[in-house]
Design a protein around this nucleic acid. Structure first.
Lengths: 212, 212
DNA sequence: GGGCAGGAAACTGTATCCAGATCATGTCCC
DNA sequence: GGGACATGATCTGGATACAGTTTCCTGCCC
């Protein structure tokens, strides 16, 4: 298979859409429709959708596939997982950091900062996502990275919702700035500690918004 | 769908075979053959196999699906993940433990102990699996539990291999006994600490066998 | 206006078939 | 004996069609 199969191509495309927030929480991904859009039969689309479901990015319903919708209790379970894994991941990222990646991360933080006046929520989300995936991809442990990415996909809709809360923006940006400083200094312990606080702050914002 | 679909039924059956060690590391699971064996077309078989692959239990090759075969470096990445997650999981299991579950765990440990003289490797493996899945299923955090189960599926063949090393058996059983004692005492900290040591011991055994 | 029933639409699961890719085996040549 | 090439077998990916299930919409009745 010198060329990518339809299934793999469609999987990549759908995963990118999901991770870019282009799939709404009420959208239904239906294989026949996507097949027509992409010029293929529904079979490879279905295969890609089933794979995304098996990996936790989507949920199968009797009327197409949708984004997972976690209960607040389930989201808190993911926060617990984040507290266990992300400090270590940030530490590893700090150790592996490069000047080029630091530049890119700094740009993402400045972009997020620039939305504080304008209230441009989608841009704030995209910049924050760029910061996050930028440092995550420095993590050398592939099993750890895959695990983090998997659960992040499941709470995507929650993240979009909490990002709409302007109260959180300054907190998030302050966290990003301090993480960036730790990364720049190759401060492994500092990155780990700040990441833990970052996750805790995110959980506090979630609990406030969900009135838990 | 009041009756289980072929796909789901076949998924369950194949997963059971995998987890019971009935699939050899050189076996190839081919959808046409399994379809004939089970009296269905290859499509639901293929779907089930693709799902098992997406979940990490199998790997697709150009000639059927096989058990995953991780490189030693990849296995060590998983050990890192285990060190991060399993102490916490054991702590939660200790907190949630019930007398009935304790009985079942104790039986599993005794069964594993009984193989020390006979050298019955498959029985030792099954008893150890029973111990492990017994306490894991007490973990109330579903995200954490799913994450652990997923990466354990990927290292199944490694576990089967290291289980064949008789030197490890006494170490494993001692670990199980001490975990069992911590669970019985609802000793959350003790369970966490012992679990960390258990994982480290497993890693040491792996490093020794892989001559790393 | 609300509830229920029936039918159509919209989906899913899967069977069958075809085309393409890969692997294994056999043969020939050096 | 070893390597290269050709051929056949064996697999995969995917297209199409059909049957079954679920949901939605409309009409009718109270």
């Amino acid at each position: 298979m010198s060329r990518q199969s339809h299934r793999d191509r469609i999987y990549d495309l759908l995963l990118t859409r999901i991770q870019n927030g282009e799939v709404g929480w009420q959208d239904r991904l239906v294989d026949v429709n996507l097949g027509m859009e992409l010029g293929v039969s529904r079979m490879p689309v279905r295969d890609a959708l089933l794979q995304l479901a098996a990996e936790g990015y989507l949920v199968a319903t009797t009327r197409g596939f949708t984004l997972p919708s976690l209960t607040p209790a389930e989201v808190l379970e993911v926060f617990e997982l984040r507290r266990l894994l992300e400090p270590r991941a940030a530490a590893m990222a700090a150790q592996a950091m490069t000047p080029e990646r630091l530049d890119a991360l700094a740009q993402a933080v400045e972009q997020a900062q620039g939305t504080l006046g304008s209230g441009d929520i989608p841009l704030f989300f995209r910049a924050s996502e760029r910061f996050r995936s930028g440092w995550l991809s420095m993590v050398p442990n592939r099993a750890l990275l895959d695990t983090i990415r998997r659960y992040m996909a499941q709470v995507q809709t929650v993240r979009l919702t909490t990002m709409r809360d302007p109260v959180s923006h300054a907190v998030v940006i302050a966290g990003q700035r301090e993480l960036l400083a730790a990364f720049a200094a190759r401060d492994v312990v500092g990155a780990s500690d700040r990441m833990l606080r970052f996750v805790v702050e995110g959980e506090q914002a979630f609990r406030r918004l969900a009135a838990i």
